[in-house]
């Protein structure tokens, strides 16, 4: 639960809030200028400061994958990343996946296969699946299951999530 500090430590810490600094984040091709303290995670920067709430918070501890975004094409947990560390990167969130006025093939497949219920893990699942495809390691259904296991879905949509990804990757149903 909470951490309690001794009174002396508190006296030391109280006046020393981290300084905000100007940072620049490139998200979905747009450059955003923000004033953020170094302790702001990339996830909170997206959600609370840029109002890009498509990226979800499910644990804030790197344990659920709901916050998955793509940084230079690689999937990462944005809750475990500080925003200041990603100034030189290209960040893609669920809001930036689709081509204009359309859907990314994975987004279409998720709708088609009903690969969700509540939808809360969905942006993370889809970004993670894009990352998976970029990695080029998954060759079979079992590979998909294994390599998508960092993204929890409490609604239990896993079979349909696998169907959607498999279809976009052209992997046979019984591989």
């Amino acid at each position: 639960m909470q951490t309690t500090l001794s009174p002396e430590t508190r006296a030391d810490l109280a006046p020393s809030l981290p300084q905000k600094q100007a940072i620049k984040l490139t998200i979905n091709g747009t450059v955003h200028h923000l004033e953020l303290a170094p302790w702001t995670t990339l996830l909170d920067a997206l959600r609370e400061y840029l109002h890009l709430t498509g990226t979800k918070k499910g644990c804030d501890h790197g344990q659920c994958g709901a916050c998955t975004v793509l940084v230079d094409g690689k999937r990462i947990n944005s809750c475990l990343t500080l925003a200041v560390m990603k100034e030189d990167s290209d960040i893609t969130t669920i809001e930036g996946l689709a081509a204009e006025n359309g859907l990314h093939p994975l987004q279409t497949a998720f709708v088609e296969h009903d690969a969700y219920q509540c939808g809360y893990c969905t942006p993370g699942q889809i970004c993670s699946a894009v990352g998976l495809m970029n990695e080029g390691q998954a060759k079979t259904i079992d590979d998909i299951r294994e390599l998508m296991s960092g993204n929890l879905c409490r609604c239990g949509a896993y079979p349909h999530i696998v169907d959607a990804i498999r279809e976009v990757m052209h992997i046979e149903p019984k591989s």
Binding site: T53, T93, I94, L103, Q107, F110, V111, Y116, G119, P123
Partner: peptide
Amino acid sequence: ISRVDGVAKVTGKAKY
């Protein structure tokens, strides 16, 4: 029928 709220969910537009 595919979910009528499906596109909102896959594009991150569904707001919680």
